[in-house]
Amino acid sequence: MKILIVEDEIELIDSMATYLENEDFICEKATNFFDAEDKLISFNYDVVILDITLPDGSGIDLLKIVKEKDSKVGVLIVSAKNSLDDKLEGLDLGADDYITKPFHLAELNSRVKSLIRRQKFDGNDSIVFNEIEINPTSKEVTINNRLIELTRKEYNLLLYFISNKNKVVTKESIAEHLWGDEIEMADSFDFIYTHLGNLRKKIKKYGANDYVKTMYGLGYKFSE
């Protein structure tokens, strides 16, 4: 899977690339409009992560180039402006998703993966982690081929964990993923424990291993 990251902040682009490369993506970087345009015309990418504000042009124009060339390429817009207009314009022009700075790398990763699933397999590809299998289209989860009933939050939590397997996922990032960023309740992450507790119990009941490890109150890691 080839990803082009267009972002003018070198430090940020490095972080994004490092995280995604760890997930076995091939990442190319472009830090300005000219570079990005050049790369987009010369090569093919599966996903383009696009910053709207570039020093020498607008990401919106790049989006048009991408979509003209191959409308199947997944485009994720990254913007410092949390403005609805930008968001709507981007989505209208064919962008597939929109994320606002500052974002969690885990969130970015999960969005990219969901994009790829949607683009490549029309969502029909199931995600398999050992005995756990998730079908993103029907939102069904099976463990050892047995269907398991999960609440929406539990499902989202599991998908998020598996998208970011072997990574430390912070509580903040989970909270934002589950409840959206408008919820400002950093004081009580207790509710994550509740959902996580239920999820763990259910998974165990169906005979799967407990893959969730607590990282000193900072977050969790879903790994073997």
Binding site: E9, E11, L12, S15, M16, T18, Y19, A80, K101, P102, F103, H104, L105, A106, V168, T170, S173
Partner: peptide
């Protein structure tokens, strides 16, 4: 965003 991503890494 840079700060946050670096810490996460």
């Amino acid at each position: 965003a840079i700060m946050q991503s670096k810490i996460e890494l």
